[in-house]
Structures are given as structure tokens and as C-alpha cells.
Design a protein around this nucleic acid. Structure first.
Lengths: 227, 227
DNA sequence: TCTCCCATGACAAAACCATGACGTTTGGCG
DNA sequence: CGCCAAACGTCATGGTTTTGTCATGGGAGA
């Protein structure tokens, strides 16, 4: 559960200062003094804090190599003493996710690391769904039916999105609770029914003649594959 | 900050491949499948990668329109399947800054984008936005509603501009803090609410019946696409 | 120093959601 | 054919979460 930060910094004073601040912010810090040492410590790291000014241009080379390795997706925060535009382009070009110019404050460092983790672990694009006249844009959180916007609540949207993502497949109420509500939800299965009713109202679906949300008696619900 | 590439490409496979390579090179990629969607995503982009072969000659028309708009200075890299001299002349004539013929290598793509950015760095026009009665000039920091000037504070302007640059899309409070306040902002998410309230007062928007700034309960806020 | 801006806590208001109750449908079985 | 029980649909409701807004004090810039 603990988040591990891999720190690659040759200068001892900076390294220890950064380590101190990051540990104080609750991270597990693995500090390395050389590029080689850092490379061998990659496994298990969640985010990398890398000194741009390692000897022999090692910083940029290290980063390029990282982006061609199996750790390519790892977020990298670069530390640099130079703040010119040239360096920025070069650094981003090499694949850094963010930048921090020395000197920096402890709070800023922690905030940037936190932001990187948010970006990497948080939201990746999920794309869009289309079933018949129903359109769902999962990234934008937008739902439309027959080209006019649907105003859905969060539960409604999540439930509809889940069912629409797997058309034709039947899900039991318990499965839906696990997947949409979350496994730690404590409550009755009939809650699902209520939200299905609401969704049907939005879609103009009749329970007896459903075009989209079909009841499978004794099993659960499913989104029809043929709208 | 991060360099944003606007990608307009209708073919999903190509779009995702290009997105992957560009993101791997450290760019923020805003991918659009249609000319219209791309047009609405122009604000804030630093460089455009445009598919020449969009349906209905949309590519060339889009580019010509761009060159007549407030985004005229934006560097544009065109992708094309045809390499004939005719196309090249036509494309450069329409205002493309550079050319790339499919299939192309990831390295070549990144290199060309980089070159374009270098060429245009120094002068970076960001253009103007218009949503309904609301007009924003990002260069001048000028805002107008119903043709009369709005006196917005810096935060208000930045927040409004960001939301207006991506109409229809929902942003969580955390995303807004990251993008508008900056990733190193340390503070509560409710701060966003306060500024939304202020903006609504400026725009005469009611929270219950918003014309512009819409609350998406449990998710965040968004600028309505249809003002 | 003096504004103006901005973040934040507190409280009120609104929306949402789970749930129980009750009516309706379905399918099995005598 | 009719009865019964289980499963499902839907309404109303109270508690809970989320959001709107006011007021306040700190702080940056003029």
C-alpha cells in the first residue's frame, strides 16, 4: 500500500534533503547516488525523482532508456538547476512528466509527486460507448439518447455505463453491486431494481417490452445487444 | 508547462498510435476524431497534428479555416497517405507547416513535432474563445458577456477559460485544481466551488438552471456545450 | 499602508440514494 | 384453469452526502 519513490541524485546533500521531505510526506524513499544504481532499483517503484544534472549527461540518457524499457509508463519528475525553455523542451522530449527547478520548497516537491501519482494512477481515457440510440462518453461524463442529452445521476450513469460496456451479458444484482457500487457496499439487492427503473424512465423503456434494459427473471439484468 | 498537441485524426488505430508515441515523448495529447471536435478543442493547443484525409475534404477546409481564425499562427503538421507532388503543393498552399507521409516512424513524428515547436517557440498565440454570449480573449486576458466587459479576477478568468476551452466535458475539482491552480496547490477542493459561485454571479447563471456553468453532482463542473 | 483577492470554515439548502411497503407480473403445479 | 409463491416494478420517504453561499481573516501586490 505504501507508495515508493525512487530518487536518483548524485549530490549527497540534495539527496538527503529530498529523502527527508518525501519520507515526511509519507512516502517510502529508495535513494540512489548513481544512474546505474537507480536502474537496478527500478522494480517496485511507483514514481521516479531524477536529477537532470547527473555526471556525463547520465540523466537524460537514463530517462530515454527508461522510456524504451518495460518501465516506460513510470511517471518521472526531473530536478534541474536550469530553467530555460531549451532545457524544458529537451527534458519533455526525453520523456519527463514534470519539472522542478532548484531551489524548490518541500511542499512543492511533495505536491508535484502527489500530482504525478494522481495523474498516473487516477484517470486513464476510457473512451466512448454506443448502443442503439444511446451514447455514452465515459471521459466527458456525458450521456445522450437520440442525440439529446440525458441528465443522469452518478449511480445511474455508472450503472448504465457498466451494462452498456458489456451488451448481451446478464449480470446478477450482486455482480452489479460489486462492480458498480463496490464490493464494500452493504445493502439490499433490490436497490439495483430502483436504479434500473429510473434508467428505464430516462430511456423510455417499458419493462414488458424493453429495447435496452432487459430483465432476466431469476438472473438479473442485461443491456440488449440489438437495440 | 506541458506542451499540448492537438491531434485530429478520424481513423481510430492511427489516432491511438500517434497519441501513444506523442505521449511517450512527453507531450500532452488532445485527440479528436472529427474536424468539428478538433475545432472546439483548439484553445490551449501548442501544435496541431492533422489528418489530411478526413472525410469530405474536411482536412484542407479545416486548415484553411484555421488560417483565417485567431489561431492562424498555430503550427500545423499534416499527415497524409498520399505522397504525390500535387498533394504536397496543395497542402503547403493551404497553410500546413510540415508534412508527414504514412506510414511514418515514431521517431520521425516526434522529431517533426519538436522541430515545429522550436520554430514557433517565442510567439505562442493562444487565441480567443466564444461560448454563447461569452467571449474570452486569452491573449489580452479580456472577457466579455453579451458584448459588455466582464471584470474577472485572475482565478476567475483562468477557471472560466479552462472550462470554456473544453465545453461539454466534466472536470473534477481535483482536475481543475491541477490545471488551473497548478499541481502544487495545497488546499481544499471546495475552493473551486467558491469561484464557480462567483463566476455564476458574473454570468447571471442560476445553479439550478445553469446556462453555462453546470454542476455535475458527485463528479465536478463543466461548461455547457450548448449555451 | 491600503486595497483587492483568495482560501477556508460554517451553516443552510438541495440532490441523491437506499430502503420498506405494496401492487403487479410471472411461472409452476394441482 | 385457477391458485400460490416468488420475483419484479414502483412509489414515497427519511437519512446521508454533496453543493451553495456567507462571512472572515490572511496575504500579495500596488
Amino acid at each position: 500500500m505504501a507508495v515508493t519513490v525512487l530518487l536518483v541524485e548524485d549530490e549527497t546533500s540534495v539527496r538527503e534533503a529530498v529523502r527527508f521531505h518525501l519520507e515526511r510526506s509519507g512516502y517510502v524513499v529508495r535513494a540512489c547516488a548513481t544512474a546505474l544504481e537507480g536502474w537496478e532499483s527500478l522494480a517496485g517503484a511507483d514514481v521516479v525523482v531524477l536529477d537532470w544534472m547527473l555526471p556525463d549527461e547520465a540523466g537524460i540518457a537514463w530517462l530515454r532508456r527508461l522510456r524504451d524499457s518495460s518501465f516506460a509508463g513510470l511517471p518521472v519528475l526531473m530536478l534541474t538547476a536550469r530553467a530555460s525553455e531549451m532545457d524544458r523542451v529537451e527534458g519533455l522530449d526525453a520523456g519527463a512528466d514534470d519539472y522542478l527547478t532548484k531551489p524548490f520548497s518541500a511542499a512543492e516537491l511533495a505536491a508535484r509527486v502527489r500530482a504525478l501519482l494522481r495523474r498516473s494512477s487516477g484517470e486513464r481515457p476510457r473512451g466512448a460507448l454506443k448502443v442503439g440510440l444511446l451514447e455514452l462518453n465515459l471521459d466527458a461524463g456525458f450521456a445522450a439518447f437520440n442525440s439529446s442529452e440525458l441528465h443522469l445521476t452518478r449511480r445511474e450513469f455508472d450503472l448504465l455505463a457498466f451494462l452498456a460496456a458489456h451488451p448481451g451479458r446478464v449480470y446478477s444484482r450482486q455482480e452489479l453491486l460489486d462492480k458498480v457500487w463496490g464490493v464494500d457496499f452493504i445493502g439490499g439487492e433490490r436497490t439495483v431494481d430502483q436504479h434500473i427503473t429510473q434508467l428505464r424512465a430516462h430511456l423510455g423503456d417499458e419493462p414488458s417490452e424493453p429495447t435496452y434494459l432487459e430483465t432476466v427473471r431469476g438472473k438479473g439484468y442485461r443491456m440488449r445487444a440489438d437495440p
